[in-house]
Write a protein that binds this DNA or RNA. Structure first.
Length: 396
DNA sequence: CGATTTTGACCCGCGC
DNA sequence: GCGCGGGTCAAAATCG
């Protein structure tokens, strides 16, 4: 439901939702094949091609003037309108792939994202999530710091690469990441999560992950610093060691949750918000076993996770799309894949389920309190297919 | 019991 | 110089 803005949820749900539940005002239709399922490899092509997008009278389609503002914004930053539209999630009819995995090279493009988001807000393109209070188990009193903190580089001097990534890309990261912070970001309904590399002690690589405000199906991943150690040759623990905090029956039943069930992507969720109810979406109760076909599939790829559905038709569709995507992805990225297909599909599927996407086809709900990589793996692992994320960007 | 997550507090860059 | 906002720290909670 709308209250569940778990980052994780968004991440995982991204794919299917992107193709079916983009913002209501979007004029575009994008087939799953053209959407976020595409690997990042197609991104560069997109960016290099001036004729990437065909914009069929966008302004006419938006009498509210949404695109006029967008154009202004693009002019200001000298950014191709097509890029902006793609980044905004306002799909358009195009023969080019959606810019998933695109690397935003500079601050201007990042600002573009912000600007697009704000415009969407103004024009009703983006539904703002309802309040969803966070529950804190117990207050703590922080000691006064006695030691000086480490010096910080100026933000604009830090080496950084920003990318829009799909959940799969995020998963495809062999580095292990440990979350060390979370911060609500002004102008965005989604908090930003901070990760540092835990593959090796002292590694300076860091990652910021937040939901793409213009397309909650995707994530904005920023890489900082570089790894001071070789990349692990094995996929890092999607292993079970991590804290797996899937929704428990208690939480889904609207029972008050503890802080362990706090959704990560809660919008405007000031950590100081009073605890009230469960962070999970009560409006989209997960009902196990309502879709036998889907259950069957899920059981194939995942043995021990409960499966819960609500919307049967959309679920089936989603499963098919997922299967397709997984196959395609592995065909295209054989060189980069270090793990069996089943693992990937397992993770992806788990994410969808946890996100609640499978539930209602919406990417905006989540029943997890943590991101996929954190909730399912012991080390908050993004799994990297080669260069896609691996702390990639600058990290590698 | 160690590793990880949560989250309020603190630090500090940056714009004004 | 001041205040805002983002980034980090670290105690407590949680999990395997």
């Amino acid at each position: 439901m709308d209250n569940d803005w778990d980052l994780f949820a968004v991440v995982k749900s991204c794919t299917a939702a992107a193709s079916t539940t983009t913002t209501p005002d979007n004029n575009i239709s994008m087939s799953p094949a053209e959407g976020p399922f595409l690997s990042s490899g197609s991104m560069s092509t997109f960016l290099d091609d001036d004729t990437s997008f065909v914009f069929p009278s966008l302004k006419e389609d938006r009498p509210d003037g949404a695109f006029e503002g967008l154009e202004e914004f693009c002019k200001e930053f000298s950014i191709d309108m097509s890029l902006a539209a793609a980044a905004s999630g306002m799909t358009v009819t195009t023969t080019k792939p959606f810019p998933v995995g695109q690397v935003f090279q500079n601050q201007q493009q990042i600002q573009l994202q912000q600007g697009i988001y704000q415009m969407q807000q103004q024009h009703g393109n983006l539904q703002m999530p309802a309040e969803n209070p966070i529950i804190r188990s117990s207050p703590r009193i922080r000691k006064t710091k006695s030691q000086p903190s480490r010096p910080r580089k100026r933000r604009n001097q830090q080496k950084m690469a920003v990318r829009i990534m799909t959940p799969e890309e995020i998963y495809a990261d062999s580095w292990a990441w440990r979350k060390y912070g979370r911060k609500p970001i002004k102008g965005s309904p989604y908090p930003r999560n901070y990760y540092r590399c835990s593959t090796s002690k002292g590694c300076a690589a860091r990652k910021h992950v937040e939901i793409n405000p213009t397309d909650p199906d995707l994530f904005v991943v920023s890489d900082f610093g570089e790894h001071t150690h070789p990349r692990p040759n094995q996929r890092n623990s999607f292993s079970r060691s991590t804290r797996t905090r899937l929704i428990s029956p208690a939480t889904t039943s609207s029972e008050p949750s503890t802080n362990t069930n706090i959704p990560i992507g809660l919008p405007n969720s000031s950590s100081s918000s009073p605890a009230s109810s469960s962070s999970f979406s009560p409006n989209t109760p997960l009902v196990e076993g309502q879709n036998p076909a889907q259950n069957e599939y899920i059981e194939m790829v995942e043995e021990h996770v409960e499966v819960e559905y609500e919307d049967e038709d959309e679920d089936v569709e989603m499963v098919e799309v997922l299967e397709e995507h997984v196959e395609v992805e592995y065909e295209d990225e054989d060189d980069d894949i270090l793990i069996p297909n089943v693992s990937m599909s397992e993770e992806i599927f788990r994410g969808f389920r946890e996100l609640g996407v499978i539930n209602n086809g919406s990417a905006h709900s989540s029943d997890l309190q943590t991101q996929p990589w954190t909730s399912t793996s012991s080390t908050s692992t993004f799994n990297a297919s080669g260069n896609s994320s691996g702390s990639g960007g600058s990290g590698d």
